[in-house]
Amino acid sequence: MAIATLSTEKPPIEAMEVVYKRPESLAEVQTHYCPGCTHGIIHRLVAEVIDELGVREKTIGVAPVGCAVFAYQYFNVDGCEAAHGRAPAMATGLKRVMPDRIIFTYQGDGDLASIGGNEIMHAAARGENITVIFVNNANYGMTGGQMAPTTLPGMVTTSSPYGRDVKTQGYPVHITEMLAIMPGVAYASRNSMHSVAEIRKTKKAIRKAFEAQIKGLGLGIVEILSSCPTNWRMDPFESLEFIRDHMVPVFPLGEYKVHDELKRRK
């Protein structure tokens, strides 16, 4: 009886203030991401920024090959699916024929830093007006957790079972630092998903990377340290601690390049 009373005494809808809702740019579907994976949060941040900038109806997303291969189904914007590593080239084609549209790529570290190294370098060198969301989870998530160019020294993966030996398997690749020195890059930042505070900062960085494009300043890239509990063989909390304690020291956070025009606004 008490329950029935409660439900009929709901305040009228207009009186309630909505403080949290699904961004319009995020499709109303369930994602396939593993529990504790931070891809989903990053999707939400990107969608919130697209909403806030009011560009949903002129945005086109380019999905990678990797865990985010279905990203185009999760964003409520026009989308396509590039070949492995080629998203920056596909985005270049889209942007060059539609300079007034907002084009973003969403790529993993195997996709962007390994097989697609050439495509991202040259998109940056040309100063393509695109936004790049670069999710670094230190391994090839989709194919079962193999070593990526971003895998930490000593880190065990399914293809570095003795731990990454830098003598024979090389060193982690620092894409954001490399891109930051290129004149065509307007914004380059490395952020992390390991705490609420860092997630907030990540959203600000994503916003700037989109603003760089809207203002026609050049390429904007946000590298985001992201968790992969399944392949790291950790629970979600341990994964976040792993980012904080092990990834951040190798991949220092912060803005590496901020175009003057992005600094001026408060």
């Binding site: 080239a89 270049t92 084609g93 040259h122």
Partner: peptide, 10 residues
């Protein structure tokens, strides 16, 4: 590789 994927995008 870049060229054909730009073509794909356009």
């Amino acid at each position: 590789i870049g060229a054909i994927n730009m073509v794909y995008g356009a």
